[in-house]
């Protein structure tokens, strides 16, 4: 489904190389966890997958269903069914979450030759997901992310993920800064969405979230390279010993 080959990426402005040759293959239905110490390039990887312009791919390839997406703009990647839950979602004054999400849904449906969802049907779906994600309904009446706490912003990202129902969901440190209830809510959302044709790439620093969402594959990313790949127990090992071993090896 998603395949990353020898991926090298730099910060567009400074040309500082962050990703130094990453290989990764995610099959339908799999949950992959990307773990690593601060500054290892985890978030960069998540953003490069979604096509953030502040990073540039200098070598290697990313393919979805065998087609390269490296040249695609972020909106075109979203149309293919990719989704990135942001680590720091932007505030957009005057834009309501409902309006934003309806526009996103319409754009994706339109790109896939589907007709627009009616306002009524969409509202029903939206309200359902608001309840499921446990977002304070008052927040939804505000501007997108404006005045939201860190946890509320993350719940709002989960709301978007659930409404848009992507095939490839990338989560960039969604668990950081969450209290236990919010963490549980995020995990429930992911578990409910797990299905044979949907894949997850979960970027995380801690093993916390992985207590609730059991990954199929765990990758340890250090200094822009994947240094170890294993099953769920690898995450438990990290919890016990930290990243010390990898850092000293370097």
């Amino acid at each position: 489904m998603l395949k990353i080959e020898n991926l090298h990426a730099v910060v567009t402005d400074s040309e500082e190389e962050i990703l130094k040759g990453i290989d990764l293959e995610v099959s339908p239905g799999e949950v992959h966890a990307i773990m690593g110490p601060n500054g290892s390039g985890k978030s960069t990887l998540a953003n490069v997958l979604m096509g953030k312009p502040s990073y540039s791919v200098t070598d290697g390839d990313i393919t979805v269903d065998g087609e390269s997406i490296v040249e695609l703009m972020p909106d075109a990647r979203a149309h293919l069914g990719m989704f990135l839950a942001m680590q720091y979602p932007s505030e957009v004054p005057g834009v309501r979450p409902w309006q934003f999400l309806k526009a996103a849904k319409d754009a994706i449906d339109n790109a896939n030759g589907q007709s627009k969802m009616s306002v009524r049907a969409f509202s029903k779906l939206f309200d359902e997901k608001v309840t499921e994600t446990g977002i304070n309904p008052d927040l939804i009446k505000r501007s997108l992310n404006e005045g939201f706490s860190g946890g509320e912003k993350k719940r709002n990202e989960m709301l978007q993920m659930q409404v848009l129902a992507p095939r490839i969901a990338i989560m960039d440190e969604t668990d950081s800064g969450l209290d236990i209830d919010a963490l549980q809510a995020v995990a429930d959302g992911v578990n409910k969405m797990r299905s044979p044709d949907r894949s997850f790439v979960i970027v995380t620093h801690y093993q916390r979230l992985l207590h609730y969402v059991k990954p199929d594959v765990v990758h340890i990313l250090v200094n822009g390279k994947i240094v170890e790949t294993g099953g769920a127990p690898l995450a438990e090992k990290i919890e016990a010993t930290g990243y010390r071993d990898y850092l000293t090896v370097r």
Binding site: M50, G51, K52, P53, S54, M73, P74, D75, R77, A78, H79, F83, L84, M86, Y88, P89, S90, V92, P93, G94, V95, Q99, F100, L101, A103, A104, K105, A107, I108, A111, S143, L144, Q160, L164
Partner: peptide
């Protein structure tokens, strides 16, 4: 901001529509 644009575009909204949405929101 580039961050706002990326945010909207990552949800499937075209660059032009993203600009428009940010600007009309700002004028709301």
């Amino acid at each position: 901001s580039d961050e706002q644009l990326f945010y909207l575009m990552a949800r499937g909204i075209s660059e032009e529509d993203a600009h428009y949405m940010i600007i009309t929101g700002w004028s709301r």
